[in-house]
Amino acid sequence: MSKNYEIDLPLKEEDIKNLKAGDRVLLSGTVYTARDAAHRRFENAKKRKKKLPFELKGATIFYAGPTPSKYSGRLIGSIGPTTASRMDPYMKMMLKAGLAATIGKGPRSDEVRKMHKKHKAIYFAATGGVAAMLSRYVSSARNRAYQDLGPEGILDLKLFKFPVIVAYDAKGGDAFA
């Protein structure tokens, strides 16, 4: 039976232990947006032993690129998850560096699902194509890095009760199965 949780980020060990695939969670706290091009830069930075724009240990990454805002004083318009499996080739590197969770959409490779068990991490799925609604659960957005990538730049987002479903838990559970 799936449970409902409200969780403050960063994820605690206890949260990771409790969460089961299929659970519904309202997330609050800081996440970083990063998608294809940013991950490529992370990989290059790691190879050259350079620092990443944020500390990966314990962090949550939201695979997302928002629309711009129409209003001054607000940084983003609509925001929602992109297909997580495109970032699968980077997951070994990211989880080894201590990444605690990702937010995306759609199933990922079986290999990546198993990595979540090995590294005790969570993959959350948010609903795709409902980005106007999801933007209401983002309380602030700040530029962090890679702004030359346009919508693929890294943002610090503060979420407030952002609705997600546990897609892969840290025990090998899979909400898509």
């Binding site: 129409k70 609903t127 194509g129 409902v130 106007a132 209401r136 479903i165």
Partner: peptide
């Protein structure tokens, strides 16, 4: 139940997009 919850989010999103004058999806 999860399916219904997601469909409900899609229905709500259509209204929020109108009310807040925002794109339905970030991928335009």
């Amino acid at each position: 139940a999860t399916g219904r919850q997601i469909l409900d989010e899609i229905i709500r999103n259509a209204k929020v997009a109108q009310d807040d004058k925002l794109p339905l999806c970030q991928d335009t």
